[in-house]
Write a protein that binds this DNA or RNA. Structure first.
Lengths: 261, 261
DNA sequence: GGTTGTGAACCGGTTCACAGCG
DNA sequence: CGCTGTGAACCGGTTCACAACC
């Protein structure tokens, strides 16, 4: 989530927890698969397994949508597919623009999951004049000069930013000014937007770093093998750290005398 | 589930909250930018703004790492960069394999943020023999037959899956069997892995659906009443389902074909 | 003065366990 | 019976606000 608050004006009626909303697409995917196999009903247990969550959580999630199940039986697959789709707003068509048609943008344009589920790539936009007119994934790239016009004409409210980090904020500002109120950001930058605009980010490098953290810990936990290869440190002790870490240090003493040098 | 206990074996000492870990990369990025501008110190307030969080949260996060700040002054940028890097395990080199060199895989291979920060693309792997040997982002693609060998030889512990959903689980299984213990999954599937293996997923379509949910709500909030447009509803209420169980829905059930798939 | 570090209150979300119902 | 729906306990994380310290 980005800056400011946008949510819940005390509207307790439509109050679906954010965590639940984030899982609905997961349930929907599992249900769609069941639907394709013509499975008529599922129990919370089965569906939960397919979605990779536990059944209590799933039932609680569904309870926010209403009582769509049948005790002793389970959930009607088709019915639930429809209810979740509607709740997520997928019964309507969402035109989306992708800005920045580099490797990533091109990959996104061709991504299958994009076209499905009510999302439609309304336009591909790039600042490079050499790209203009070139079809990518069957859609001709348009020049960013026309960004505002494109958004207005197609009534686009969702924008995907796949530009270099350096221009992401500028692109974001233009998108927002043109009327976009939801942004999916692939650029490694923190975007700031006015209230009422939602931003979600997808950041490869952050994900990898989180994995590295756990990976490192796994290595350190193993028997004998001691962690912390402790590479050469960029020598940068805290300015006036002279008097030692007298008081508290960390959760538990951290490494002895943090001194890199 | 052998021990039921998975990760975090009562990690009392090194107990950094998961939410904090997820933010460290963000702080690191902001700090790196400051470092490049030769800024010597930052206050929690400034750094928090740059990272898009609030300062209390940032200070609390840092408190889990240790007392690395100076009261009345702030944090030493270089020192903090080092400490966070070390905490995240970025002071060592992490060889990574990318499996599935389609549009997305190729984009990832060339992604800048990948190479930086201690991650190194050790190999690109694809099942298509026509791809074998072809250089992508300067790295020759290898055939998936050699997956196990590649992982063993390079000591790869992090794998990125960018294959079609249909083969993602199979690829995952092979990666894990070969010794990979952290997986970043771009395929729209729930992967199941044994205990001790971490999986993080990046799912474009889920992100879009979450945005659509909020977008829909924004549209509905404007007027005083929240009566949804309500498209043609499917006849499948749970109540009347008493005996209808046997008569299955069959091919085009009664629900509007909301999605292609 | 300024800013960190942190106990304590608070809040959202998860899990438990069982009542309710088919 | 079996399975859903949900109140209540629980837990992790966020925010508050202030004491500790430079």
């Amino acid at each position: 989530m980005a800056t400011g608050r946008t949510h819940r004006p005390a509207t307790r009626s439509r109050g679906i927890p954010e965590a639940t909303v984030a899982r609905l697409p997961l349930y929907l995917r599992a249900l769609t698969a069941l639907s394709e196999r013509s499975v008529p009903t599922v129990s919370s247990e089965e569906l939960a397994a397919a979605a990779g969550v536990n059944s209590a959580k799933l039932r609680k999630d569904f309870s926010y949508l209403g009582s769509y199940g049948t005790r002793g039986v389970g959930y009607d697959v088709e019915y639930l597919v429809y209810q979740i789709s509607r709740e997520l707003g997928l019964t309507q068509d969402w035109p989306v623009v992708i800005v920045g048609i580099g490797n990533l943008g091109a990959a996104l344009a061709g991504y299958g999951g994009f076209a499905s589920r009510g999302f439609r790539v309304a336009a591909l936009i790039d600042a490079d004049p050499a790209m203009t007119g070139k079809p990518v994934a069957g859609i001709p790239v348009q020049h960013s000069d026309d960004l505002e016009k494109i958004i207005a004409e197609d009534g686009v409210s969702i924008g995907v930013i796949a530009t270099p980090a350096g221009v992401a904020q500028a692109v974001c500002d233009r998108l927002v000014a043109a009327g976009v109120t939801s942004i999916l950001n692939f650029a490694p930058t923190v975007l700031s937007v006015p209230d009422g605009v939602d931003v979600r980010k997808v950041d490869l490098s952050i994900e990898l770093q989180i994995l590295a953290f756990h990976e490192q810990r796994k290595a350190g936990e193993e028997p004998g093998e001691d962690a912390a290869p402790q590479a050469a440190a960029p020598a940068a002790p805290p300015a006036a750290r002279t008097t030692a870490q007298g008081g508290r240090k960390g959760p538990d003493g951290d490494v002895p005398a943090v001194m890199p040098a």
